[in-house]
């Protein structure tokens, strides 16, 4: 049942030239030009993506906070084992859309969802959907790292434990594998019983990613996972996303267009609750078809 794969160490080839350069230098400040996308990295065209298996598929999704409509008829397919980036200015609905995918919006009172969201072809908003089961399959990493005020070990083990795993040996194995996957094992293996709150901000966020992996999800949702981190920690998280996409379907919300350009295969641009444009990242950033998209990615607004 353990479907975790041992991932190879990142090499310049797998990361692409852009990512490597970003690891050592400061993030370039936004200028009036579209972010550069590494040209020599293997990328799929929009047509090729359309032919892939669609892991998550949103069809005509409307979302309301009370009487305030936050999403207007959003249809978006997210192919399996690829990274989909959701970009757009603040308040454009990208985070709302992300939270629809694991029904975290259910926790907010007085919200309405219309339309279909299919996970492996099954509508997750059907009345018979087990939300608890859904959230085990669709993991989530939040903008602000939010480790539990418990030990590092207990943070990772919490997900499996609530799912009913009790044997210490199995838990040990999961904790080690998830921490390794999140590139945190070497830093914390000698202090698994220390409080998670003693870790640095970047380590805490990687711990949260490891924690999300511990329930063996198929899909990983990330809500601006690096927005509160320094450039070095951000680069580590981005490397991590690059590695994880071999085993997971990743949907990431980001304010940082360079980040979207670096890590994602597909990019969706949201504006005022509508999906304006979606396409292969390489295409969307080099040849946007909509004027709003072009203005946004070149930094003219947002």
């Amino acid at each position: 049942m353990v479907k975790l794969k041992k991932l190879s160490e990142p090499t310049p080839e797998t990361l692409g030239p852009l990512v490597m350069s970003e690891m050592t230098s400061e993030r370039p400040t936004t200028s009036l030009a579209a972010p550069v996308v590494g040209t020599d990295r293997s990328s799929l065209s929009a047509d090729e993506m359309r032919n892939l298996r669609q892991k998550v598929s949103a069809q005509g999704v409307d979302f309301f906070y009370g009487s305030n409509q936050a999403l207007h008829n959003v249809s978006l397919d997210m192919p399996e084992n690829l990274v989909t980036a959701l970009i757009g200015p603040s308040g454009c609905g990208k985070s709302t859309f992300l939270r629809c995918l694991n029904r975290m919006n259910d926790m907010i009172d007085d919200t309405i969802v219309r339309g279909d969201i299919l996970l492996d072809g099954v509508d997750i908003y059907k009345s018979r959907t087990d939300v608890v089961e859904l959230r085990k399959r669709v993991g989530m990493v939040f903008q602000k790292s939010n480790p539990f005020p418990k030990s590092i070990y207990d943070n990772i083990a919490y997900g499996p434990r609530v799912a009913g795993v009790k044997q210490r040996g199995v838990l040990d194995e999961i904790v080690e594998k998830c921490l390794e996957q999140a590139a945190l094992w070497d830093e914390v293996k000698d202090r698994l019983n220390d409080s998670a709150l003693q870790l640095s901000g970047g380590q805490q966020q990687r711990l949260c990613i490891a924690r999300a992996l511990a329930t063996f999800p198929d899909v990983l949702l990330m809500d601006e996972p690096a927005s509160a981190l320094d450039p070095k920690s951000t680069a580590r998280i981005e490397d991590l996303i690059f590695e994880l996409k071999n085993s997971y379907t990743i949907v990431i919300v980001t304010h940082n267009m360079q980040q979207a350009a670096r890590v994602s295969d597909q990019t969706a641009f949201f504006y005022e609750g509508s999906l304006i444009e979606v396409g292969a990242t390489t295409e969307l950033f080099t040849r946007p078809t909509q004027q709003q998209t072009e203005e946004y990615i070149t930094g003219r607004f947002g």
């Binding site: 926790m107 959230r135 085990k136 939040f142 602000k144 939010n146 539990f148 609530v162 999300a212």
Partner: peptide
């Protein structure tokens, strides 16, 4: 955020109350 993290990991309300 603690509640969100717990629910996002597939914990039930009872597990969130009791465990976190």
């Amino acid at each position: 955020t603690i509640r969100q993290a717990s629910y996002a990991l597939g914990a039930t309300r009872w597990q969130t109350v009791w465990g976190q």
